[in-house]
């Protein structure tokens, strides 16, 4: 099943099963069905449950927070991940405080598609989820193609705490992998924590390097993984987190088979998500940890420039070889 279908099916089921679920956002109803078509068709069956909005992200996010305070379960769609900059105050200064200081359970999910590689330029390509990481009272989750995105969405909605759910634009059209043997030479295991953690590694081989990542980077790392195996005979594993703000370091350390870890993210490296992950791993285990992420430029529209700024297969591949060439 495709990633987008898993999300859409889950939205459909949630609307069907639970009367308190509502979907809120711009252009989500028919005939448009959302900028990325995730809600396509839903307003036909549930006309009262899709609340289409004007372009007022701050106010309709606040409205969703109010609905959640009143016991409903709103799922907000922010059309592009870049636009979450508009809703920072409502999430950080309102939702997170109601959950924490007022001790209110809030069933609230804010979904947004993140990421670049499409030539959309500086304000439609970013991975800004870092803004919400480390904010008490907000959880940041990101599905990927190594487990069911719908399940991540469902768990987010029933968590009782505001969740920012980072989808990936390029993942929408990709097939979700089933656990077990993949492409004859790899094997996928899914560890069922509060939010799933997946590991994709070479079948019956121990891994020489571990990639820790989330979201759309999984696909790029799959290409890296194949290139390493087929061109260099190097075994690697991809450990993909879905709970990216409150991950279980112990579980990650248990899953890591190698002594070398490369933390890969699409967002900017400097002050990035990977900095915290790398530190957590170093404090917990004696691992050699490096990082790859976006270079510190606003994301350019031109393809060669965008590919210079964002992490690519070649850059991760080369960084891996460099790590493996050094003694640990």
């Amino acid at each position: 099943m495709k990633y987008i279908e898993a999300l859409r099916n889950t939205l459909h089921h949630l609307l069907e099963e639970d009367d308190s679920v509502y979907i809120i956002g711009e252009d989500i109803s028919e005939p448009y069905g959302g900028a990325f078509k995730v809600t396509k068709g839903l307003s036909k069956k549930f006309p009262e449950r899709l609340i289409q909005t004007p372009m007022s992200e701050q106010a309709f996010t606040g409205m969703a927070i109010g609905m959640a305070l009143a016991g409903l379960k709103p799922i907000v769609e922010i059309m592009f991940g870049d636009f979450i900059a508009l809703v920072v105050d409502q999430l950080i200064n309102h939702a997170s405080k109601f959950w924490d200081i007022y001790g209110k359970k809030l069933h609230l999910v804010l979904r947004t598609p993140s990421g670049g590689y499409r030539g959309y330029g500086a304000t439609h390509s970013q991975s800004l989820e870092r803004i919400f990481m480390g904010i008490p009272g907000i959880k940041v989750v990101a599905p990927n193609i190594l487990s069911d995105p719908g399940e991540v969405l469902r768990r987010s909605l029933y968590l009782g705490k505001p969740v920012v759910l980072i989808e990936n634009k390029l993942d929408y059209g990709r097939e979700i992998l089933e656990s077990g043997v993949v492409d004859e030479v790899f094997t996928l295991s899914i560890y069922d924590a509060t939010f799933p953690v997946s590991k994709l590694k070479v079948l019956n081989e121990s891994s020489e390097i571990s990639f820790i990542t989330y979201g759309g980077m999984v696909q790029i790392l799959r290409d890296v993984q194949r290139k390493l195996l087929f061109e260099e005979d190097i075994t690697s594993e991809i450990i993909a987190l879905t709970d990216i703000s409150d991950y279980d370091v112990n579980l990650i350390v248990q899953l890591v088979e190698s002594k070398r870890v490369l933390v890969v993210e699409e967002g900017w490296s400097h002050f990035g998500w990977g900095s915290q992950v790398a530190l957590d791993l170093r404090l917990m285990a004696n691992l050699e940890v490096r990082r790859v992420g976006a270079r510190p430029f606003n994301i350019p529209a031109a393809e060669p420039l965008e590919n210079h700024v964002l992490p690519t297969v070649d850059r991760i591949f080369e960084e891996t070889l460099r790590m493996l060439s050094q003694e640990v």
Binding site: I51, Q58, A59, F60, T61, G62, M63, A64, I65, G66, M67, A68, L69, A70, G71, L72, P74, D89, Q90, N93, H94, K97, F98, Y102
Partner: peptide
């Protein structure tokens, strides 16, 4: 409910009304 951000509860209040 009150909060310390000027005007910030007004969108939330619309959500309570919506509910």
């Amino acid at each position: 409910y009150t909060n310390g951000i000027t005007g910030g509860m007004i969108p939330v209040a619309v959500g309570l009304g919506m509910a």
